[in-house]
Amino acid sequence: MARFIAAVLSGFASGGIYSLLAIAFSIIYMTTRVINFAQGDVMMVAAYVYFLAVSKSYLGLPWPAALLIALIAGAIVAMIVYIVALAPLGKFDPNTNIGWILTTLAVSLILVELARLVFGEQQKTVAPVIKRIGSKKTLFQLTPQQYLVIVIGIVLALILEVLHSKTQLGRALRATAHDKATASLMGIDTNFMVRYSFLIAGVLAGVAGWLLAPIIFVSSNMGTLVGLKAFIAAVVGGIGSTRAALVGGMTIGMVEQLSIYGGAGEWTNALVFITLIVILLVRPTGLLGEALIEKV
């Protein structure tokens, strides 16, 4: 039973990271209708920045200061992704003009290569923020850092949910997501909303990088598979909603960990994709997604 509880908790921990990035995917999708394939790599850059800031070999700052710098870095890199990959495309219909797939993928590859050139091939280790729960180093086989991921993942998702449903800014974002042209006519600066969505996505990637750095080693390709799975999580949950991204992330995390618990460790990646296929067959819009009705 203890092993099962540990597997479920591990699922929440993995799901926490996927959720954060899935929310980032969703927010950008809401305002632009594109998938930012460089999202995982924005997280990677933020993780490297956190490493540089907190490591005693470099700046040696206290972790809150290092986190702040990492979040700013995440936001800046996300904005750069927008400026480099999407802004030059101008006004376009993402359904027919699929250039954004290539540009975001290209930026992803460039970020990975740049990180490899600048930081080298050697993976980096980062100390966790919390090392003990009381007197214990682990609880149900999970480290304090993993519990931190669960808590922050859920709390941030809830905050964003409230922010987007109860505030003026959130309503503007949803209006932009619903009908960009009408939102613009109603006085909403839709271009600002797009930039805002990238900014928030960058900050979320920064948080994910900060949380993940002590769990997996910081490396140039740390964001590739995590980013891909977060994208799957966003689709599984129903892309375009914070709640759905949270549910999707937790679902993917749980599938991973329960498959390992069940003795199929080498099949986890395959099972994640099978889950995606099954859910899309049963519910094409994702677990919590709603069908978009295009007015013509």
Partner: peptide, 17 residues
């Protein structure tokens, strides 16, 4: 006899077994 995917970070479940 347990397996994992290259790049996996948590093998606690396999080692628990």
């Amino acid at each position: 006899a347990e397996q994992y995917n290259v790049g996996d970070v948590d093998m606690t479940a396999q080692l628990s077994r």
